[in-house]
Write a protein that binds this DNA or RNA. Structure first.
Lengths: 124, 124
DNA sequence: GACATATATGTGTGTTTTACATGTATTGAG
DNA sequence: CTCAATACATGTAAAACACACATATATGTC
C-alpha cells in the first residue's frame, strides 16, 4: 500500500489540471467512428485527443466492455492478424448517436469555459 | 439508503454531461478575486460561472476550509452585518496565483476540446 | 409568543470516477 | 531459452462528487 496522495502537489502547490470528466469516453468513440480498432491500438492513439495524459489501460478495457454491454460498441475476436489475440471494436449506430450528444455537451462546456476566461480577463 | 445510481440515464441512455473536474475551485477563486464574500453568497453567485449546475453546499464549505488551510483564501467572522453569523472570505495573493495557474490549465483544456471538435467535424 | 421560512455554516456518508498495482498469454528478437 | 513488446484483463485504493441531515439566528405572520 502506498502512502495517501493528497491533492497537494509535491512542491506544496495544488495540482492544477483542467480535465473534462470522462473525456476518454467520447475520445474513444471518435477514434472508433473513424475506423474500427482494437484496445491496445486505441490506447496508443488516445493521446492524440487527450493530450499528454495517457489513459489507464485497465480502465480502458473496462470502459470498452461497459460500452459494449450498452450496445454502443460491438466487437469480435480478430483471428486474422498474428500476435496475441485481439478484440476488434466498432462503433454502433447507437454509439454514434451518443457521440453526437457528447459533442453537444462539449460545445456547452466550451462556452462555459469561454465565459469564465472572459470574466477573468475583464478585471485583470 | 437509496438505490444505487448507475451511469445510465432514465431513458436507458448514458448521462452525457461534459464538466471540467473541480471547476468549482477556480470559479470560487474568481468570484473572490472580484470581491470578498461569504459562503452562502458564493453559493448563489456560482451558477453565473458554472451554468445551471448548482454546486453542493456541503462541499462548498469544505472546499473553502481546505483552501484556507493552504493559505489560498483567508477569512474572519463578520459581526458587523445582522442575521446569522457569516464568515467573510477573501482571496490571498497565493490564491490569486493559483487562479492564474487554473486559467492556464483551462486554456489548454479549451485547445484540446477545440481539436476534438474539429476532428469530429472533419469526417462527419 | 408560537410557528414557518429564509439565511448561514457545517458534518456524515454513499456513489462515481480515476489511479495504481498486478496477472496472464502470445509472439519475435537475440 | 530469455527478454521485451504486444494484448487483454481484474482487484482495489484514492479522489471527486452527490445526497442527507444537523444546528443556529433572524424575520415575518397569525
Amino acid at each position: 500500500m502506498r502512502g495517501p496522495r493528497s491533492r497537494r502537489h509535491h512542491g506544496g502547490r495544488w495540482r492544477v489540471l483542467a480535465r473534462v470528466e470522462r473525456f476518454a469516453e467520447p475520445a474513444l468513440m471518435l477514434l472508433l467512428r473513424e475506423r474500427p480498432a482494437h484496445g491496445y491500438e486505441l490506447l496508443e492513439r488516445l493521446p492524440e485527443l487527450t493530450g499528454e495524459q495517457r489513459i489507464e489501460m485497465g480502465n480502458l478495457y473496462r470502459l470498452l466492455r461497459a460500452l459494449e454491454e450498452e450496445g454502443l460498441v460491438s466487437s469480435e475476436w480478430d483471428a486474422s492478424s498474428p500476435g496475441p489475440a485481439k478484440r476488434r471494436y466498432s462503433l454502433t449506430p447507437a454509439g454514434s448517436r451518443l457521440l453526437d450528444q457528447w459533442v453537444d455537451a462539449l460545445r456547452q462546456a466550451q462556452l462555459r469555459t469561454e465565459r469564465f476566461l472572459a470574466r477573468y480577463e475583464e478585471r485583470r
